[in-house]
Design a binder for these strands. Structure first.
Lengths: 144, 144
DNA sequence: CTGTGTGCAAACTCTTTGCATAAGT
DNA sequence: ACTTATGCAAAGAGTTTGCACACAG
């Protein structure tokens, strides 16, 4: 009955449904569909609006509110990483592993830094604080 | 007699007026007043709203729109540095020198990293791109 | 069935803008 | 005077929320 689980042959739907279940999220039609859009094509950086547009293009009926909810739920489940860069848009990165980004000014685009960045002598955090993460953003601009 | 130089005692007003003039900005009442609030007390991180509140507390009549304008003009003049961290608020840092930040989650507060951070092996930017700057944000949280 | 998820539209926050008035030089 | 800056209120972008209906378990 669940042809929607893997209509296009990848098995991604099944995996996603299982992942969602493991995260305590019901694998609803919308969440599975968004999950497939997100995880089917390698690592991506999307805003909520991007994903909403993709969903519409893929004939998936989802409201923007649900896209936001879903992105945050996926983030909470560790399936996505939230990247806040330029104060305007929030990006969601399907690459959850530890890495950093180039941010292309003027295009509002993120590019994964595949080489890793070594940071020496990272200062001690202020007293009473614990480090949650280190984010390095290299701002780049297209050469004239 | 020198009290005629500065009505409220400091020389900051004079300095700020000169800096503004040098930057091609007319030293208006509002800009000088905001400049004094910004630069009188060492390095600070403020949002537009923060500065607007301070101005009101200091009985300086300025609209929020003017605060925004002024902050951006000061940034353009190199008097401030804009720091976009958490996607919500934009902070303006009176410390223009090259340094990085701790961002205190839950408090939306920035702390200067006084030690500097050495970054080795910073990857080459993507083809056709030039590096505009490197930003390191260490996210910290108050220990439970 | 029961409770969680979804959709819609309205609310909300932060920021920018347009235009008449005020102020600097 | 001439030009630029300011204030106000309204618009704008991105995101969140409240509530009735729909759907998964």
């Amino acid at each position: 009955m669940s042809f929607w689980l893997m209509p296009s042959g990848g098995g991604a739907g099944v995996r996603i449904a299982a992942d969602l279940r493991a995260a305590g999220l019901r694998p609803t039609r919308q969440r599975v569909a968004l999950g497939k859009l997100l995880f089917a094509k390698g690592h991506r950086h999307l805003s909520a609006e991007d994903l909403h547009e993709e969903a519409q293009a893929a004939a998936v009926r989802v409201s923007l509110a649900t896209v936001y909810n879903t992105l945050h739920q996926f983030t909470g489940a560790g399936l996505l990483r939230e990247v806040a860069i330029d104060g305007a848009r929030t990006y969601f990165d399907t690459n959850v592993s530890h890495h950093h980004h180039f941010f292309v000014e003027g295009e509002g685009r993120l590019i994964d830094m595949s080489d890793h960045v070594d940071i020496d002598r990272l200062p001690e955090p202020p007293a009473g604080m614990e480090v949650m993460g280190v984010e390095v953003v290299v701002r780049v601009r297209r050469k004239a």
